[in-house]
Simulated assay, not measured.
Amino acid sequence: MFAELKKPFSDIKMRPKSNAKGLTSDTSKSKFYSICEIRPYLFIAGCMDVSHKKIRELRITHIVDAANISETQRTPNVQYLEVNINDDEREDIKKHFIEAAAFIKKAKESGGKALVYCAAGISRSASICIIYLAIEENMTIKDAYIEIEKVRPIICPNLGFWRQMINYEIEKRGETSVNLLNGMRRPIFYD
């Protein structure tokens, strides 16, 4: 397992078989071992789910690499944006919000497709996708989170990333749609 982390684009034979959308056919594992479609042009994954073959099959043209793993293989003819941060509450992910959203928007506007991945497709990539939807589709971070969680139920941005997304939303909207309670790993949404 640890050796496989050094080569995130290698095909792993023990993975469930993929269907045409790049999602796995085994529903019990499909949200963890898959590339999940948020929009027809926007996908989220963990780096172990990504292979050159899947990138080509899905016609991915742009990749936001937030895995922070050195020596990752690159797929030819794909544009990359590296977001070099660790999944740590003290990391400043906010400084990447605008650049990552613009990069994904560029993929969409050029008729391409963007994939955002981190080590497990849970925290860093989820935060970037949430903020993209907030910036480009004017969604609240609550609604963006709920929408992404529908296709990838394992998402769980760390508390530091949540605080930064909340601060960003307050700066842009004057209020936040999410409140964090002490000791909680996920926000609680009130209607």
Rank of each mutant, 00 (worst) to 15 (best):
R56I: 01
R173E: 02
T75Y: 07
S127Q: 05
A101S: 15
D143N: 13
E91D: 13
Q164T: 03
C36Q: 06
P157Q: 10
E147L: 14
T27W: 11
I141F: 07
I55D: 02
A102P: 00
Y117P: 02
I131S: 01
G160H: 02
I12C: 11
P187E: 02
K54H: 01
F43Q: 01
I166P: 02
S10A: 12
I155W: 04
I93M: 13
Y41C: 09
A100V: 04
E149G: 04
E71D: 15
S110R: 13
E91T: 08
N179I: 11
I69L: 14
N182D: 13
I122M: 10
Q164I: 06
T24W: 09
K106F: 09
Q164V: 06
C36H: 01
L58Q: 03
N182Q: 12
F2N: 14
K29C: 08
K113V: 05
A66T: 06
V64L: 08
R74N: 07
E71T: 12
A100S: 15
I12S: 11
D92K: 15
C118P: 02
A45R: 06
M139D: 00
N182C: 07
A134Q: 07
C156Y: 00
N77V: 00
N77M: 04
F189H: 04
C129R: 07
G46M: 13
R124V: 03
L81K: 12
A120W: 09
E89T: 13
L81Y: 08
G22I: 00
E99P: 05
A114W: 00
G112T: 02
K21Q: 08
M1E: 06
V83L: 01
P16C: 08
V151F: 03
K95F: 03
S127R: 03
I12M: 10
R59G: 00
R185P: 03
R59T: 00
N179F: 10
I44P: 05
N68W: 02
I55C: 12
I166D: 01
S127T: 15
D92I: 12
G183K: 09
T61N: 07
S34F: 03
P153I: 11
E137Q: 08
G111S: 12
E169K: 07
L133T: 02
F103N: 10
I128L: 15
S25W: 05
R90L: 14
Y117H: 15
N182S: 13
K150A: 14
S127V: 04
I166C: 05
L42M: 11
F97D: 04
N86A: 14
R74F: 11
N179M: 08
S127L: 06
V151A: 04
E99A: 15
A126K: 12
T140A: 07
N138F: 01
